[in-house]
């Protein structure tokens, strides 16, 4: 059955990554640090990379400086009228230079599941990410922080995506992203901006497979703007283009407004209102998003 089948090879890959992270973490434990300023690790987007809620940013997970390691874990839930998205995972950053991430997305089919006679069915995917900071610094200097990244995604439940016309059960997104905090830019308040350009063939983040009858890979633009009320509180908006490559399940771009609270360098809570538009034939999918993040 859809939701109950576990792809053993993916589970193994997951486990191998987890073990690798664990040993790297132990090897670097002496250098674990919190040398970066609060909130500069960002939140975690639904695919596991450090960023906003929907968009990866140039920042790397956690609070380690160029001399330290850092990392984060997250758990996110997005409740839509007819579906629910659950995401969790972790990321690990070495020397504020390279970030490795691992995430699991589970998309509960809710209404659609019942309609097709599979109540409780879900679409799941694993996402393995890597991001490299090329240049710049989020806070200091005039240049933005610039990073490139890749997200390898693999569907664990491909029957429904295949049925609606998806071509592949896995795909790799690549992106380049620039993010900068403009100090005292808005009447004295700090303003964060982010631009991300992504090449992707992922339908609905990959949960509905990759590629379709209307095309395969394409370039997509994503952006975020946030204002920091103080070092702990930020509010902003995000926008993310999505491919629209399945005639059978037309897809809309995504947007959100968010409020983030960085209690300290270990705990952050992000609340958001997310608009995803039409998903697999069900229109107006929008709802509340809550994300908890732990970091070091």
């Amino acid at each position: 059955m859809i939701a109950n089948s576990v792809n053993p090879s993916s589970a193994n890959v997951c486990m191998r990554w987890a073990i690798a992270f664990f040993f790297i973490a132990i090897a670097h434990a002496a250098r674990a640090g919190d040398g970066r300023l609060i909130a500069t690790g960002g939140a975690t987007e639904v695919e596991g990379s450090a960023g906003g809620g929907l968009v990866p940013w140039a920042v790397l997970a956690g609070y380690g400086t160029r001399d330290e390691i850092g990392g984060s874990v997250f758990r996110t839930q997005l409740q839509l009228p007819d579906y629910r998205l659950d995401a969790y995972g972790g990321a690990f950053t070495i020397d504020n230079r390279v970030e490795f991430s691992l995430a699991r997305d589970r998309f509960d089919l809710g209404t659609l599941g019942k309609a097709i006679g599979m109540p409780g069915a879900a679409l799941r995917q694993n996402v393995m990410g890597v991001k490299v900071r090329l240049a710049g610094d989020l806070v200091y200097g005039d240049l933005p922080q610039i990073s490139i990244g890749a997200q390898y995604k693999h569907d664990l439940d491909f029957s429904i995506p295949k049925l609606v016309g998806a071509r592949h059960d896995s795909g790799t997104d690549v992106y380049i992203t620039a993010t900068h905090l403009e100090l005292a830019a808005l009447d004295g308040y700090d303003l964060l901006w982010n631009l991300t350009v992504r090449s992707s063939n992922a339908n609905q983040f990959g949960l509905l497979g990759f590629g379709g009858d209307r095309g395969d890979r394409r370039w997509l633009a994503e952006g975020s703007v946030a204002m920091l009320f103080d070092p702990h509180w930020a509010a902003g908006v995000e926008y993310r283009q999505k491919p629209d490559h399945l005639s059978f399940a037309r897809e809309d771009n995504a947007a959100d407004v968010f409020l983030a609270w960085f209690a300290n360098k270990h705990v952050a809570v992000i609340g958001s209102w997310v608009e995803l538009g039409s998903i697999a034939g069900l229109a107006r999918q929008r709802g509340a998003y809550l994300s908890l993040q732990g970091s070091f």
Partner: peptide
């Protein structure tokens, strides 16, 4: 906070 940010912006130039 705005005054803090303005001062930090100026001080950060010497980083």
């Amino acid at each position: 906070v705005p005054t803090q940010n303005r001062l930090i912006k100026r001080l950060a130039k010497v980083r």
